[in-house]
């Protein structure tokens, strides 16, 4: 198999790679905010439970979580494994990344000086207005570099989907590598990820710059 055929075959999987990437972001970014707010709940029970869940999600491999989400329902309840692997992949990824985003959000929210809340309170803003108008915009600016880090990791983590044989780019590359006994597909995959992250870098750099208008 020549290089061009290899690239063409692996490109077919790029759409699925992108599907994992964008769907994970779509669900995990907002889910992370809900988790962060629950983590900061005044109720010790709620914050304690959420804290434990976050520590499990961050303390065990994503690969393991992906296997659990994909095959767990079959082994536990005898539910047949869904043929569309995208669903368990996105569920596992979204939950895992939400845990990381939640901790980033929490750090950002807690870094906002208490004086901002007090000023808003004295001016008569409601709690929701204070959060949405005063706190959140400042949080977004502060956490953007950390979020960029996570997004870059996510691009590379999409390759973990090969463990459940979801036909994304890396899975196809691995299959070609096996059948052709060639290392070349891995080089191609590396170039793909690097190019993908160059785009991520560029976009997030623009976003950071757009928020540079205040300190």
């Amino acid at each position: 198999m020549d290089l061009l055929t290899m690239i063409a075959k692996m490109s077919e999987g790029l759409g699925r790679t992108c599907a994992i990437f964008f769907l994970t972001l779509l669900f995990s970014l907002p889910l992370g905010m809900i988790v962060a707010l629950l983590r900061m709940s005044k109720s010790k029970v709620v914050s304690g439970v959420v804290r434990f869940i976050i520590s499990v999600l961050r303390g065990t491999p994503l690969m393991l979580q992906l296997l659990a989400v994909t095959y767990g329902p079959y082994y536990l309840f005898g539910i047949s494994i869904s043929r569309n692997k995208l669903i368990p992949v996105v569920i596992a990824f979204a939950i895992n990344y939400a845990a990381y985003f939640a901790e980033i959000y929490r750090g950002g929210i807690e870094s906002i000086p208490v004086g901002q809340y007090e000023a808003a309170q004295v001016l008569g803003f409601t709690k929701a207005q204070t959060f949405l108008r005063i706190v959140l915009p400042q949080v977004v600016k502060r956490i953007l570099p950390s979020v960029t880090n996570e997004i870059i990791t996510l691009v590379k983590d999409t390759s973990i989907a090969f463990t459940v044989s979801y036909q994304e780019m890396f899975t196809i590359g691995k299959q070609i590598a096996n059948s052709q006994t060639s290392f070349l597909p891995f080089v191609v995959a590396g170039v793909f990820y690097f190019a993908f992250n160059a785009i991520v870098d560029f976009v997030m750099g623009k976003a950071e710059k757009a928020m540079d208008y205040y300190k």
């Binding site: 000086p113 901002q116 000023a119 004295v122 001016l123 008569g124 005063i134």
Partner: peptide
């Protein structure tokens, strides 16, 4: 309480302006 908050203003030591 917001009805009462309309009656007063508070100027802080550290200004607490909204930076954004």
């Amino acid at each position: 309480l917001n009805a009462f908050r309309r009656q007063f203003g508070l100027v802080f030591q550290n200004f607490n302006l909204f930076p954004h």
